[in-house]
Simulated scan of single mutants.
Amino acid sequence: MTQSKTEVLVGGAVLAVAVGFLTFAAQITGVGGNAASYPLTASFRSLEGVNVGTDVRLAGVKIGSVNSVVLNPETFRADTIILVKEGIEIPDDSAITIASEGLLGGNFVEIVPGGSPFMFEPDAEIEDTQSAVSLVSLLLKFVSGSGE
């Protein structure tokens, strides 16, 4: 009888720790129920290294994430939807770029704010985009001495 009570208590403790861990992981990754946010769209020539869930940053601070990436069959560009946290207003002349965290780091989406007094409305398109730069092609240009 004592052994079964101990097993039940240990099992309950393990279950509670597992639920706590999953809740913590969902909050950190932003998977569990997105906080209030609004969508913006952008179209990139190359979205190398960016997937659904990739961070969207402004001044190095995470303000959202990539929600959707699809190939546009007419333009052969990567049409992207990003979600930006509610309350963060972005000037409508801002640019959006694919940036790298370093040689070994991953890529993220960076918003470079403009100076317009007007802000993007939900579902607006950011037209000023800069695609990912391929590190391999940069190295090949450097090695070959091509200045193109």
Rank of each mutant, 00 (worst) to 15 (best):
I111D: 03
G11R: 01
V10G: 15
A42P: 12
V8T: 02
Y38I: 11
L103M: 04
T129W: 12
D92I: 08
A25G: 08
E125M: 05
G12M: 14
V109S: 00
L104D: 04
K141T: 13
I88D: 09
S144E: 01
A99N: 06
G105Q: 07
D93H: 01
T23F: 13
M119E: 06
L83P: 00
G145A: 04
E7N: 11
A124W: 05
A13L: 07
G102C: 11
L9R: 03
V17F: 09
S137G: 06
T41Y: 14
V19M: 05
V10S: 05
L135F: 13
P91I: 00
V19W: 10
L83G: 06
P122M: 06
T23R: 07
V133T: 06
G53Q: 14
L140V: 11
E101A: 15
T97N: 12
P122Q: 00
A25D: 04
G11S: 08
A124Q: 02
S146K: 11
V10M: 13
V109G: 09
A59K: 15
P91L: 00
E125Q: 15
T2G: 12
S116G: 09
F120G: 01
L103N: 07
N72S: 01
A25L: 14
R57S: 03
F21V: 09
L71T: 15
V10R: 08
L140H: 13
V52K: 09
M1W: 11
T80K: 07
I82M: 08
P91F: 02
F21E: 12
A78F: 14
G20R: 13
T97I: 14
G147A: 00
D55H: 12
P117W: 08
